[in-house]
């Protein structure tokens, strides 16, 4: 219940934050909403010497149009996304997913950036970020770089964000309504055991499928996508494609769901998500 002692810093600018991260190196941790970091600190699974709170850094919390994309500041909370009229109209996958994260209190504090960098294999956002093929902008002492969602997740709780970098923005495309997120939740924690996000692009006859909770890192179900490319999305086609949603992945196995059950659930939820998305098209 009680974290180990640490020093607390609250920089006001991004540059200052990055400088502090460089200075304190691996002993420092960025604190965003704190809803992943503080729980692990309370259990003393994480014991950073320095905590750098980026909540006072200007302009990290926003949802705004930027060219043909929607830009979301990394410090935007799950709730602000859930309640964003702009996203509801332009990228409804995110507003559908947000209320399925944790609980109301968690959504009031937790941030999309924190969730993505924390890269819990059971976190929800990664599924949508992958399905939307989002761009993620990362700031470091050498300036900013953008990476594709598919390159962002490296492994279990590991991303391309280095310890002295800060994720500052997520850019998603606008989509039609033909999207869906279907989640099978771990009962006790609420995290995803199998979460599937689907974007159906009716015009181009393509789908993209992001999967979370199932494997050590979230993934795009490329096999499903390629089978369905150019196809009419009728029941048979969907059934068939969903059947290969776990192909080539090594599912996690724990007391909440065996590997076999996870592999099964991802197929069910892929089918369901595709059906819902198509019905909305």
């Amino acid at each position: 219940m009680i974290p180990a002692a640490f020093d607390y810093l609250r920089p006001a600018t991004l540059d200052e934050a990055i400088a502090l991260l460089e200075l304190h190196g691996a002993d420092a941790k960025v604190l965003a909403g704190g809803h992943s970091l503080v729980p692990v600190m309370k259990l003393r699974l994480a014991q950073p010497k320095t905590v750098i709170d980026i909540s006072s850094v200007a302009d990290l919390s926003y949802v705004r149009e930027q060219g043909d994309k929607i830009a979301i500041g990394a410090m935007t909370t799950h709730y602000d996304i859930e309640a964003s009229p702009l996203l509801r109209d332009t990228c409804p996958l995110l507003t559908e997913l947000a209320p399925q994260i944790g609980d109301a209190q968690v959504r009031n504090r937790g941030t999309i950036g924190g969730s993505l960098v924390h890269a819990d294999p059971a976190a929800d956002w990664p599924a949508a970020i992958l399905a939307l093929d989002a761009d993620l902008e990362i700031a470091g002492s050498n300036g900013r770089r953008a990476v594709k969602a598919t390159e962002f997740f490296v492994g279990m709780m590991e991303t391309v964000v280095q310890s002295s970098e800060i994720l500052c923005e997520i850019r998603v495309p606008t989509t039609a309504r033909s999207v869906a997120y279907v989640k099978f939740a771990q009962r006790a924690s609420g995290f995803a055991i199998a979460g599937v996000a689907v974007v159906v692009d009716g015009a181009n006859k393509t789908v993209s499928v992001g999967v979370t909770g199932v494997a050590a890192r979230p993934y795009r179900a490329l096999a499903v996508e390629s089978v369905l490319r150019g196809k009419v999305l009728n029941r048979d086609a969907i059934d068939q494609a969903a059947g290969i949603a776990a192909e080539g992945v090594e599912p996690l196995d724990d007391i909440h769901a065996s590997a076999a059950f996870r592999a099964h659930l991802v197929q069910v939820n892929t089918r369901r998500a595709l059906e819902v998305a198509v019905s909305r098209g």
């Binding site: 771990q186 009962r187 006790a188 924690s189 007391i255 909440h256």
Partner: peptide, 18 residues
């Protein structure tokens, strides 16, 4: 749930579903 080593796997609200 205890595993075969007697480790308690449902030692928190995160793992014990109510």
């Amino acid at each position: 749930v205890y595993d075969e080593n007697g480790q308690l796997l449902t030692g928190e609200f995160m793992d014990y579903a109510m």
